[in-house]
């Protein structure tokens, strides 16, 4: 790197991340929520605002900025106002450890993946605050459902990453990328993403991430047909937009974490991960992998009908958690034996 002092470097990183988060939300919402969903339902989606409706979300954001900020009479004012900030903060902090190239990372924490999981569960707190402070029966039901769901699927999510950590012997996300670039099976010297050895972990991680993001089929907390809007029923205007942005920002971050853990992150096969030019190609490679994983998440969202609350809890506790514990044991066994 060029000789920058810490404060200058941090300021640049902060500026980049402040730009990246809205852009990622824009890309995901436009590509998947507007266009892919529309095409899957034989519609065109937004077409008027900008070429093929590309500026639609910006128009929506400006609309939300102009809406009245209504706080219900009975709501707990301070908690009500604070809840969307907590949720957005959890999303924002996730971006600190996402790598996009050999040197392109805000802070390569030693406990990277542990930090990511810890920070992402902050959003459960924000959702519970929103549900409780609204003083609305639908919101309370939605908030409780969300909390129950987020904690139930937090466990398979955490346990599914364990197989990768055992293989990589590190929790740092950059370390995991390097471990995959240097990992070889079948005598191939090209580097091997962990999806080949951790396919079970990958499946569990993606299912749990779907639930953590409260996307259909796990969207009972915000189910329109039964709870109107769930925990964000009382939010209007910009505070609602914060929840919305956090949802898509987190979806992007989870897809990024999954692509680092299982698809090799920014590294390319047959390329030494220390090559300097990967700093330029890396972000593109990451974006490509993230969009593939996000496409899977939203494809499932638009195709599968909603589960019932009891089916959801049963699936987490009786299927995903035992399977992921067995996955850890088997991975550890192979690691020690080989």
């Amino acid at each position: 790197m060029i000789g920058l002092v810490y404060w200058q470097e941090t300021a640049i990183k902060l500026a980049v991340i402040l730009g990246v988060i809205p852009v990622t939300s824009l890309i995901l919402v436009y590509l998947f929520l507007f266009k892919m969903m529309a095409f899957m339902q034989s519609r065109l989606g937004p077409m008027i605002t900008g070429p093929h409706g590309t500026l639609q979300l910006i128009a929506e954001a400006i609309k939300f900025l102009q809406k009245e900020d209504i706080h219900p009479d009975n709501a707990d004012k301070h908690v009500f106002a604070l809840a969307p900030i907590v949720v957005l903060m959890s999303t924002f902090l996730l971006y600190v450890i996402l790598p996009a190239g050999p040197d392109l990372i805000v802070e390569d924490l030693d406990v990277g993946i542990f930090y990511a999981l810890a920070v992402s569960s902050l959003s459960a707190l924000g959702v519970l605050m929103a549900g409780w402070a609204s003083a609305n029966k639908y919101a309370l039901l939605g908030g409780l459902r969300a909390a129950g769901q987020l904690i139930a699927y937090e466990l398979p999510l955490v346990l599914a990453t364990m197989g990768v950590i055992i293989q990589a012997e590190t929790m740092s996300l950059q370390g995991i990328v390097h471990a995959q670039a240097n990992f070889s099976i079948f005598g191939l010297d090209s580097g091997m993403p962990f999806i080949f050895t951790q396919i079970v972990g990958f499946a569990i991680f993606m299912i749990a991430a779907q639930a953590e993001l409260t996307q259909t089929p796990f969207d009972m907390p915000v189910a329109e047909t039964e709870l109107v809007g769930g925990f964000h029923i009382e939010y209007t205007g910009f505070r609602f937009l914060l929840f919305f942005m956090a949802e898509f920002g987190t979806a992007f971050a989870f897809a990024a974490i999954a692509s680092v853990l299982f698809l090799g992150g920014w590294s390319l096969p047959f390329v030494d991960p220390n090559e300097n030019w990967l700093n330029f190609v890396g972000p593109g490679v990451m974006l490509f992998k993230i969009l593939i994983l996000a496409a899977i998440i939203f494809w499932v969202r638009f195709t599968v009908p909603r589960l019932r609350e009891d089916q959801l809890q049963k699936f987490a506790w009786k299927v995903l958690i035992p399977v992921s514990l067995v996955n850890i044991a088997v991975t550890g066994l192979i690691k020690v034996a080989v």
Partner: peptide, 28 residues
């Protein structure tokens, strides 16, 4: 750095909410 980013996220929300306060009509 993590703490700075946490503070920055609050600042970001503060700025945008302030912007919204200027743009939106008063709550009737």
């Amino acid at each position: 750095t993590v703490a700075i980013f946490g503070a920055a996220s609050i600042g970001l929300v503060g700025i945008t909410l302030g912007l919204a306060r200027i743009l939106r009509p008063p709550t009737r």
